[in-house]
Amino acid sequence: EYALRRYKILREMALKLHELRSAVEEAVKALLDFDLFFAVGRFAKDYFLNVPTLSEEYVGIGFINGRNLFLRELELKNKTKVIPVNYVVGDIPIQPPNTNKERIVVLSGANSGGKTTLLNLIAQIVILAQMGLPVPAEEVYMCPFDEIYLFSRSRGIMDAGAFEATLKNFAKVITSPKKKLVLVDELEAITEPGAAAKVIAGILELLYTNKNTCAIFISHLAEEVMKVVKVPIRVDGIEASGLDENLNLIVNRNPIYNYLARSTPELIVERLYHLSKGSEREVYEKLLEEFGGRKSK
Rank of each mutant, 00 (worst) to 15 (best):
A195N: 08
V88R: 11
R67E: 13
G62N: 05
F170R: 04
F63Y: 14
K172P: 04
I190T: 02
R67C: 13
G132T: 07
L69K: 08
I104C: 06
D33S: 10
H220M: 06
K179Q: 14
F48K: 14
V225F: 06
L36R: 15
V173E: 08
A14V: 10
A110Y: 12
K297D: 15
A197K: 04
K180A: 04
V51Y: 12
K227R: 13
H274A: 08
A39W: 11
E282P: 07
D33T: 09
V85I: 13
N120M: 13
L288R: 02
E290H: 03
S296P: 13
R21N: 00
I104H: 07
Y2N: 11
S263R: 13
V173T: 03
L243I: 13
Q95D: 08
Y259F: 14
L243H: 07
I233R: 12
S296V: 12
T53V: 11
K211N: 11
L260Y: 01
R281V: 09
I233Q: 09
K297H: 15
G109D: 07
F34Y: 15
N210L: 07
R72M: 14
K79Y: 09
L119H: 01
C143Y: 10
L150Y: 11
A137K: 06
R253Q: 13
K178W: 02
I250K: 08
G278A: 08
L118F: 02
I83Y: 13
G292P: 00
E57W: 13
T166E: 14
A123M: 03
V182G: 02
V126K: 02
K211H: 12
L31K: 15
V140A: 04
M226H: 04
L249K: 07
A27G: 00
G161I: 04
R234M: 09
T166I: 05
I61T: 07
D91R: 15
E285R: 08
E224T: 13
E285W: 02
A195R: 14
E289Y: 00
E12C: 09
L10W: 03
V251L: 08
P52D: 09
L119V: 06
T80C: 15
K45A: 09
Y58F: 15
K286W: 14
E285D: 08
N248K: 09
N254Q: 02
N50W: 00
I61L: 04
E290F: 01
R153C: 13
E290L: 02
P84N: 07
F217W: 01
A261S: 14
N212H: 12
S22E: 11
P255R: 01
F70V: 15
G278F: 05
E192C: 03
I9H: 01
E186M: 06
K180D: 05
N254T: 07
E192H: 05
Y257K: 03
K115M: 06
Y284R: 04
A215K: 02
P265Q: 04
N254I: 09
T99C: 14
T80L: 11
K227C: 09
E290C: 06
I256W: 14
V82S: 04
T116G: 08
A197C: 06
G194V: 05
N50S: 13
K277D: 01
K29I: 10
V88A: 10
A129V: 05
C214K: 03
